[in-house]
Computed example of a mutant assay.
Amino acid sequence: MHTELVSEPGDPTYPNEDFAAATLPASGQGGTLVVLDGVTPPRDGTGCLHSVPWYTSRLGGALTELTVSLPDVPLQEALARAITRTAEAHAATCDLSHPRTPQATVVVARWGVETLEYLVLSDSALLVESPEGAVTSLLDDRLSRLPRSSLATDAIVDSTVRNKEGGFYTAAADPAVAARAVTGVLPRGDVRALAALTDGATRWVEKFREGDWADCFRFVRKEGAQALVDRVRMLERADAEERRYLRRSKTHDDATVVYVEL
């Protein structure tokens, strides 16, 4: 197994809110990857004493451990258990019912001799390449399908669409959200390589229109994960004043890319 992992903060003076891990179990058969993108909170608080990096580290660490140590537990159940474990770590000190209690997007892939399982929750992406070179994007596109009016302000988002029926879902404090994830199983022989990207890296496709998902995957395979992040940073700097592509989005976002050749 060959792996590349790059994760960079959008602002070097502020902690990276992403989490990424790639593991090879002791058996030497199969592996896992876990990528989280912490949701940057509004300035008026989250009801929690802890930071988003604290949350993503806890959730990501628990999810990585569970997907490796319990290979027969479905990924949705592993995510639910990881959310529960993380919630229990701060339920006594924090208001976990707050709509902006620390939360994150999730991508998980786990493969063995015969199958590859995947889970995607919210707007990070998982790209899978077949032995013939075809690239499939595995996405949870509910956020992108919402009308712009429902995303106009933090208050509107939190009251109408965040972790609500008809809206979009992120991993926060309620383990039931795991059942809302996009999941599936692929034959192991149908997968040659895969890449997981947080939305700071998917800007290459979704904001700057440098190519489609297949082009993005081929760029990472040829040039490397770091090259994709570097290209996004260059495009962000070029658009910083004109705001042709970024519009209301922050100039730089945490960007994580994990590339795995099986």
Rank of each mutant, 00 (worst) to 15 (best):
A195Q: 00
A152T: 12
A152L: 11
R148G: 12
T202C: 04
S144N: 14
D141P: 04
V182S: 11
R145W: 10
A152R: 11
S150L: 14
L186I: 07
W204M: 04
A176V: 05
T183A: 05
D190F: 13
P147Y: 05
A173M: 13
G189T: 09
A178D: 07
V191T: 06
L143F: 12
P175W: 12
R145Y: 01
A179Y: 03
A173V: 03
A173H: 13
A155C: 00
K164Q: 15
A195G: 10
F168C: 08
S149E: 15
V182C: 13
G167F: 02
D158E: 14
V161C: 02
R192C: 04
L143C: 10
R142N: 12
D141Y: 03
T160I: 09
A152G: 01
R180L: 12
L151H: 01
A152H: 06
G200C: 04
E165D: 15
A155F: 01
R162G: 08
R192H: 11
L146Y: 06
E165Y: 04
A193I: 05
V191S: 00
G200R: 10
D174W: 01
G189K: 14
L197T: 05
G167I: 09
A181W: 12
G184N: 05
L146T: 07
I156Y: 04
R188Q: 12
K164R: 15
T160K: 14
R203W: 01
D190C: 13
A171N: 06
P187M: 01
L143R: 15
W204N: 03
R188F: 11
V191K: 00
V182R: 10
V157K: 09
E165H: 08
R180T: 13
D199A: 00
R192I: 09
V177Y: 06
R142T: 09
G189M: 07
L186T: 02
P175C: 11
L197G: 10
A181Q: 08
A201G: 10
P187Q: 03
